[in-house]
Design a protein around this nucleic acid. Structure first.
Lengths: 339, 339
DNA sequence: GATCACATGGCAATCGTTTGCCAAAAGTTG
DNA sequence: CAACTTTTGGCAAACGATTGCCATGTGATC
């Protein structure tokens, strides 16, 4: 019977069986040669590996996952991939995943809770767990997701779930101390989206610290954290006659800087500006931005590590890992103007 | 016989068989209800879907991939995830993948060809294809990879492979025209890594355009395209007494701007600076950078689209898709200083 | 040299789907 | 109403690995 000659297509990828046949052993032996070296004779193993190499064989993660239940894949979901703030988290997660020999699946939730839930549901059966960065999902949805898959949150907390968060309490106090040291007695907070967990933590921290120091603080916004929203925020700050503004994040802060520049307002002469995130670009805008840096790369890496721990050993320890923040003082803050 | 009661672990995810049993149909019917609606009666289908919903069933992409051969997953490999230049490509790829209902796996090759090859080999059996952005792999390795998986390159060309590239020929001519219009009669190119395909395309284009216009151009470098390399590049430019410098990319260009600022050199008064990429931040550095913008987001999206086309129908058309570039003229370029 | 343990390799079941094929049921046609 | 087509659902065989269990062969021990 003539073998069907496949038309000029892609050559079939060789499987464990091809290797087994070619090496004259059973498939199970090939499998063990790869995953369980002690279980097979050294010389057999060497031979198998040699044949595998020659055939260009690589084990199929898919088939492996199906049988073993582990996919050695973790998913990282971020609200907006393009936002440079998340670059660090992504990088860190990538690094930790690569170090652990695990594949990273990246999802963009578009700041949209339903999209996030849909992704979790779709990816769930195929990954070993989720790192949800700045998740917008309601607690209830998070709880449900965590029933089926290990979940670690980044800069978001939810009852019973492990998370990695920045130390906003200390960080915001540093900001307030810094402003106070320059003689500011009040400031404005230009707030971001109400659903943002980080945002509310920041506001709470700023209020508390301001209160401790007897400073006056008022909140404006919410503003969409984009450069273009900076104009509105800046104008509101000027309208309020404030000597300092702390912005929801650097994106907004840089937008504010721009607008102030356009309007001929001196920074920090007339108004001091502070941001959050120390995002890429914050050190080369004009003036360079004073901002509270988070260790986002660490956060991403630690989140993945925590997740893998949780997934491999089923020891679910829903602890919170708090990472220190650091105030980077640059040119956008200075002495309060008098009068 | 007493059923083994699982200790307080994660509840078992329901499978197609659970749904089938609960709905009183065969597993194949459930499968078809999801993937082949016409093949099953409307009311049966509705019932099955209802049961599936109730049980929180989601098909396992893993099992599906194993049988069907398609994983509905594509991998995007970039040299450096953190580099904001790639954000656009990543975003675009994500968008196109999401639109096609396909999962995106992200890999960071760390600008390291062996890492890239290892990733391709490891991920190969589990994905429907690769988008390789600014791949550093030698042509030969690319060819081998493309034998086993569909591959689409971004800003890299290789014989027989589909690619999406920026129109550097036109773009570089625009840069040169722009400089010439300001009276510059020569300029320096601060080059990037020699392996960079984009980099060499840029250099070739600049040379050709300069030659056409009778301008003099010399190449310095290579420089590692990071902010910190800007100092060396800037100093070299000053040493050469050039009136204009075109940098390998914006990262380097901004580094150059900084250094020139530190040294009290006026931009564009003394020296004009041009970059490539229109990376995030290029519009709010000081002065804002004149740069050649690529449509990176489009590139990522088109690459994924091309890849899926190639993967689904096995029509391998190794065409090159050339995307237009756009010169964004900002504050860093101006009239050549005289003398 | 008989006994035993251990190292090693193979058999076969399994993971959760998809899909080719067949059979039953339903509808159509003359 | 017989013969035929079409719709619809089920059976069972893959897909490519992993892994529990068993069989064999080897060397160690007494």
């Amino acid at each position: 019977m003539a073998q069907v000659t496949p038309p000029p297509g892609r050559p079939r990828r060789s499987t464990i069986n091809d290797v087994a046949r070619e090496a004259g052993v059973a498939a199970s032996t090939v499998s063990r040669a790869f995953t369980n070296p002690d279980r097979v004779n050294q010389v057999t193993r060497a031979h198998v590996l040699e044949v595998a190499e020659r055939l260009g064989y690589a084990p199929s993660p898919t088939a492996r996952a199906l049988e073993s239940g582990r996919s050695d894949t973790v998913a990282l979901l971020v609200p907006d991939i393009t936002n440079p703030y998340f670059s660090g988290t992504i990088k860190g997660a990538e690094r930790a995943a690569a170090a652990a020999g695990v594949t990273l699946v990246l999802g963009d939730t578009q700041e949209h809770p339903p999209t996030e839930e849909k992704l979790v549901r779709r990816l769930g059966p195929a990954v070993d767990g989720f790192v949800l960065a700045a998740s917008r999902m309601p607690d209830e949805a998070l709880r449900r997701a965590a029933e089926l898959n290990p979940v670690v949150l980044v800069n978001r907390a939810s009852p019973g779930l492990a998370c990695v968060v920045a130390d906003f309490d200390t960080g915001t106090r540093q900001i307030v101390d810094h402003l106070a040291s320059f003689g500011h007695t009040s400031f404005v907070f230009a707030g971001g989206p109400p659903e943002s967990w980080s945002g509310s933590r920041r506001w709470v921290g700023l209020q508390a610290a301001a209160h401790e120091r007897g400073m006056d603080v008022q909140r404006h916004g919410p503003y969409v954290p984009m450069l273009s929203s900076g104009a509105a925020a800046a104008d509101a700050v000027l309208g309020a006659g404030a000597t300092a503004v702390v912005c929801h994040n650097d994106m907004l802060a840089i937008g504010v800087l721009r607008r102030l520049g356009e309007r001929g307002v001196a920074v920090p002469g007339d108004v001091s500006v502070v941001g959050f995130d120390d995002m890429f670009g914050s050190d080369f805008c004009t003036p360079p931005l004073t901002t509270l840096a988070e260790r986002t790369e660490d956060a991403g890496a630690r989140a993945v590590d925590t997740l893998l721990l949780q997934a491999r050993q089923r020891s679910a320890e829903p602890g919170a890992l708090v990472l220190p923040t650091q105030l980077r003082v640059r040119g956008s803050t200075g002495p309060a103007r008098v009068g």
